[in-house]
Computed example of a mutant assay.
Amino acid sequence: MKFAVLVFPGSGSDVDMHHAVTEVLGEKAEYVWHTEAKLESFDAVLIPSGASYGDYLRPGALTKSSPAIAELKSFAASGKPVLGVGNGFQILTENGILPGAFLQNKGLKFRSGKTKLTVQNTDSAFTSSYEQEQEITIPFAHQYGNYFVDENTLAELKNTNRIAFTYSDGCVDGSTGNIAGVLNEQGNVLGVMPLPERAVEEIIGGVDGLPLFNSILKRWSENNVN
């Protein structure tokens, strides 16, 4: 399987993503600079965390001017998997690929550490290697981690089983419905705020993020390997 790690100016976890795919999964990955993004030859796209364009306007907002976005929308529409993590999740919402928006944390400060999540949907290409309602521990690092949707959108996300992960330890940053990760309608795009690529080896503090990457590989193998 061949992954594209889509890199914008200010991306910060691109190396972590590349390492998770190549060194832990043993699959292929290439860094793809946003102005040179040609994605059709890849099997999946990963959008790492960081501070794209320095978060100058809003986190993820200035990516709208990048030629990569038309490529990304086309790739997502093709049904292939797209994973946006942290700032990558913000990029997906700012460009209308996922619903919602991000506000500053309720405490108005940057926070980092580890958080506990509950797996709410194990039917997706990103979560099939987890157990339903499994509690996992994943690192996080954000100032704009407060995911917001209105009541109608929240009800729709619940009714269509598009909430992939929720915070199970209080959600002090304020996300609507304790949401930590959501899927698009087609189920091939996932945005998640905590950082699963930083939880793929015991040596760095745990492997609770590894099933997410294994799920992507598993679904691809089911569809492409005879």
Rank of each mutant, 00 (worst) to 15 (best):
L103I: 02
N105Q: 11
K106S: 13
K106F: 01
K106N: 13
G107E: 13
G107W: 08
G107V: 14
L108V: 13
L108R: 14
F110A: 12
F110C: 03
T115F: 02
K116E: 14
L117R: 02
L117I: 12
T118E: 09
T122V: 15
D123H: 11
D123E: 14
A125L: 10
T127H: 08
T127F: 08
S128A: 06
S129M: 15
E131N: 12
E131T: 15
Q132L: 11
E133H: 14
Q134L: 05
I136G: 01
I136D: 03
T137Y: 04
I138E: 00
F140C: 08
F140Q: 06
Q143F: 04
Y144I: 02
G145M: 05
Y147S: 00
Y147C: 00
Y147T: 00
F148C: 01
V149H: 01
D150K: 06
E151Q: 14
E151S: 14
E151H: 14
N152F: 03
N152L: 06
T153S: 03
T153G: 01
L154S: 10
A155P: 00
E156K: 15
E156W: 13
N159M: 06
T160S: 15
T160H: 13
N161W: 10
N161L: 11
N161S: 14
N161D: 10
R162E: 00
R162S: 00
I163G: 00
I163F: 04
A164Q: 07
T166H: 06
T166E: 12
Y167G: 03
S168M: 07
D169W: 13
D169K: 09
G170P: 08
V172P: 13
V172C: 01
D173I: 09
S175T: 07
T176W: 02
G177N: 04
G177F: 05
N178H: 15
I179V: 12
A180Q: 00
G181R: 03
V182A: 09
L183H: 03
E185C: 04
Q186P: 01
G187H: 04
V189Q: 04
L190W: 00
L190S: 02
G191V: 01
V192W: 01
V192N: 06
M193P: 05
P194N: 01
L195D: 11
P196G: 05
P196Q: 09
P196N: 06
E197Q: 15
E197A: 11
